[in-house]
Amino acid sequence: MTETLFTLSFVAAAPFWALMIVAPTWRVTRAVAASPLIVLPAVAVNLVLLLPLLGAFWPVVTRPTLAGLQALVASPEALAALWAQIIAWDLFVGRWIYLDSRERGLHPLLMAPVLFLTILLSPIALPLYLGLRLTSRNYGAAGAPRGHKARTMT
């Protein structure tokens, strides 16, 4: 059961990642990603795993020690619960990156690797995106420098 829930936590998030990476300009993707509720399937898996272990988690999160955390994650159920939390958090961060990058007009081919890295290691991807965001500061949504008209194809 724990192994199934562990796998389900990512499977529940994967369709949202696929939309943001593979179909970033599709209006359906934008509509789906507009809701923070996309993280709820992974959160639900986390809660199924976490609630029976709340008594073991509570002392570790209220008085954290490395030894306490190490002892907690020795349990496959606790580790799977933490994994589901990571999956939900990464999706939440990825959703923000996706929405912000679309608003700033960053090219989807530039953003695909950033979003993929967010799935794998969001603590590296987030500062990377923030750096890209700084470079886009002087550009409008069409990619033209602010104060200049973007050329359009007619």
Rank of each mutant, 00 (worst) to 15 (best):
V61E: 12
V61S: 08
T62E: 09
T62C: 02
T62I: 01
R63L: 13
R63K: 13
R63F: 13
P64A: 00
P64V: 03
P64L: 00
T65Y: 05
T65S: 11
T65I: 00
T65D: 03
L66Y: 09
L66C: 07
L66G: 10
L66K: 05
A67C: 06
A67F: 07
G68Y: 05
G68T: 05
L69R: 07
L69Y: 10
L69F: 12
Q70D: 14
Q70V: 08
A71D: 10
A71F: 04
A71M: 05
A71H: 04
A71P: 02
L72D: 03
L72F: 02
V73P: 06
A74H: 08
A74T: 03
S75F: 10
S75K: 07
S75A: 08
S75H: 09
P76G: 01
E77F: 09
E77L: 11
A78S: 07
A78I: 04
L79S: 14
L79I: 07
L79V: 08
A80T: 00
A80N: 01
A80S: 06
A81G: 04
A81I: 00
A81V: 00
A81K: 00
L82Y: 09
L82E: 06
L82P: 05
L82F: 08
W83T: 06
W83F: 08
A84Y: 02
A84C: 04
Q85E: 09
Q85I: 02
I86W: 14
I86Q: 14
I87T: 10
I87S: 07
A88Y: 00
A88I: 00
A88Q: 04
W89H: 15
L91N: 04
F92G: 15
F92M: 14
V93E: 10
V93F: 10
V93H: 06
G94R: 00
G94D: 00
G94C: 02
G94Q: 01
G94M: 01
G94T: 01
R95A: 01
R95V: 02
I97T: 02
I97M: 12
I97Y: 03
Y98P: 06
Y98F: 11
Y98L: 07
L99C: 09
L99E: 11
L99A: 11
D100P: 13
D100T: 10
D100H: 11
S101N: 05
S101T: 02
S101F: 03
S101L: 05
S101G: 10
R102K: 13
E103K: 15
E103L: 15
R104C: 13
R104F: 11
L106P: 11
L106T: 07
L106E: 12
H107P: 15
H107V: 12
P108R: 02
P108F: 02
L109M: 15
L109T: 12
L109S: 14
L110R: 12
L110H: 11
L110E: 15
